[in-house]
Design a protein around this nucleic acid. Structure first.
Lengths: 161, 161
DNA sequence: CCCAGATAGTCAGGGCACTGAGTATTTCGT
DNA sequence: ACGAAATACTCAGTGCCCTGACTATCTGGG
């Protein structure tokens, strides 16, 4: 009888939280575009012309996963992928017009979904919720990358050359 | 410039939290046994003889995912799977001796890991952390299963007949 | 100039997570 | 007793997520 109470295990709670979010996303935002895909598009709205690695860094995905997500967005013509003329290793990424439209459309739905998702918490509790999760996640990440100095992106070309 | 701040998006935060946990689990608990696998083993320590569906319900996994996790544990001889003689649709699950030993060993490491993971928060903050996440996750789940009455497991045979 | 090391991306492999369709078994109403 | 509905599980398909090994390109020191 040495069983443990999983409701006090942050990892288990984190998984359940993400599943709950996945569910609500599908119901209220999109069945086509996933939340990580939206995060990538969002990063490219903020900083057009980023390379893959940097986008991955912005949204918190490793090189392999970001490659998959981007290839799916590319296949659906939601973004462009072109070799950096100044560095043949990189691809520079930019949303297509349709990608930008899709991002705008999903942004409003995402906002609505977040409201529903967080509805069980008061405004102050929501603030605390963000703060606590962020602190735990940041701490665990920095256990891995011990104080890595921030590195610049691929010196993004002007927004729409 | 309609980009959104992902640090205020609970879904994004949930994903990052889970990634952080995954990392720490690998480093401090096991590279062989994953956190969902441990959750399944834990459910079987608490209630030996459960069927697949009920285990899935206990740990929060759907029928397909639980089948995969269980087949991996079965392949490694950490649990047994036998047809329920009283209901030919079910499999009754029980840890093997090695499974029970593994569960005990990982339990103590998991406890240590949880301490490290939650170290950035004070004791009271940890309580709030659990409470807030649980409330959000529960609310989102019940949006889906509108007030489903709890249903009993497969009337588990006595703990080791 | 040239090559060793760093860097961007790909690929193979393993695991988690969901949906929708399909099979076998049990249960329930008539 | 019988057939429809419910239930437990499987399978195919899609997508996320990581590691480790590999390729191509760039950079810097000698």
């Amino acid at each position: 009888m040495a069983a443990v109470d999983l409701t006090t295990h942050p990892g288990h709670l984190a998984r359940r939280l993400q599943q709950a979010h996945y569910l609500l996303w599908n119901a209220m935002v999109s069945e086509e575009i996933t939340s990580p895909q939206f995060a990538v598009m969002n990063a490219l709205v903020a900083e057009p012309g980023l390379d893959q690695r940097t986008v991955g860094e912005r949204v918190g995905l490793d090189r392999s996963t970001i490659a998959e997500v981007i290839s799916r967005l590319d296949r659906r013509e939601l973004l462009h992928k072109v070799r950096d003329p100044r560095d043949g290793r990189r691809f520079l990424l930019r949303l297509t017009d349709e990608g930008a439209r899709t991002h705008r459309r999903l942004s409003v739905r995402t906002a609505r979904m977040n409201q529903v998702f967080l509805a069980p918490l008061s405004a102050e509790e929501q603030t605390v919720f963000f703060d606590l999760i962020r602190r735990v996640a940041d701490a665990a990440e920095s256990l891995r990358n011990p104080a890595e100095p921030p590195r610049g992106p691929a010196e993004p070309l002007a927004t729409q050359g």
